[in-house]
Amino acid sequence: MPDLPAAAAHPAPADPIVDVRGLGRSFTVSEGPFLRRTRRTVHAVADVGFTVPRGAIVGYLGPNGAGKSTTMKMLTGILSPSSGTVRVAGLEPARQRTRLAARIGVVFGQRTTLWWDLPLRDSLALTRHLYHVPATDHARRLAELTELLELGPFLRTPVRQLSLGQRMRGDLTAALLHDPELLVLDEPTIGLDVVSKSTIREFLLKLNAERGTTILLTTHDLGDVERLCRRVMVIDHGRLAFDGDIAALRDSAPAPRTLVVDLAAPTAPITVAGARCVAVEGPRQWLELDANPAAVIAAVAAEHEVADLTLREPDIEEVVADLYRRPAGERGRITA
């Protein structure tokens, strides 16, 4: 991939680019048959608070209906909060939506900003007028993004004939041509194949590293999270259930780490302090750890002839699934 010029085009002053305090949004839902309709208030988001420093990549996770998209809509100004305050790039999104639009780029993975029946390049050309980008800057950025996202072969193809992966790359380009400080992505890799996902992830990492663009993304794809995010926030039932880095997320889960031991010869299940043998298969044994792995490894090596050892971290998917499943009372707020 070629380099993006002007490294760290978006310097990182101390103030956070996203500052959310006590944010809440409720909806009134009408239910039941016509004459016996009842109204009910649903709190899609309740008392959510977080900040995102400039230059970060933050994942915003949660099961369907947890309030992810509602939060994103409030951050981008297309939905006003019922309570609390939001500031994005120093602006109040719902009241300054138009000004904010020039400072942020947004991609909703399930929707498109592109002109369905026209060639991709027409939709991209429009962004120049939309955001008043000087022609030379626009041409330079379009050339860069075309190369990085490999748009060349389908720039002249009508959008309706693009594959989902191509369309997503087109949408990303459209969101980035005005060089926003913050990129908000709502499920950017939904429905994409492994190669397309990987292209997009590598691109986002490069964008963040070289231009300092802050990225906030929601996703159900934990591969995205592991590859991209240093920090994750988990929202559930409208409340923040977790805010911290991936390691802390793993630590927060009761899913234990596993030590896989390959012995020189099959033996009876190993018994050591701080571990419990959960499976035996010939010379291989699985030990579930509840203490420091170093001590367990030393103890095992002292008593047995060990051919090989592997320490397995709990799968992030299991950790998150466990977090989603936890009953509301226990969920509380874990901040690391």
């Binding site: 939506r97 639009a101 947004v106 929707r111």
Partner: peptide
């Protein structure tokens, strides 16, 4: 369909 969300993001 909710596609309006995308339209509202434009500064127009």
């Amino acid at each position: 369909t909710g596609e309006i969300a995308v339209d509202l993001l434009r500064p127009v």
